[in-house]
Amino acid sequence: MINVWEHVNAEDEAKHFCSIHKLVCPVLLDEEGEYMRRLGLRGVPINIVVNKKGIVKAVGMTTPDEVRATLTKLLLPFG
């Protein structure tokens, strides 16, 4: 996961969010959204699916159900 646009205290804000939602995956910090701008993305939440060759296969999705449906369609494993 990449935490973006916190503007202030990104580390603390992201940790607080992850503890509330019990998230355990790696979290990186993009405090001012510089990587988002390079991706041409203008909103959150958003997901990017990348395959073994490093190619972007899907962009978007808000809920876990949408992510699951997208991965099924792409024949990629979920979880």
Binding site: I2, F17, V44, I48, V50, K52
Partner: peptide, 21 residues
Amino acid sequence: GKIRTSAEWQGKNYIINMFAS
């Protein structure tokens, strides 16, 4: 606080979730 790069995930299928608190 250590820098991690996309190279770490090379050769894997993965999802990047972008979020704000």
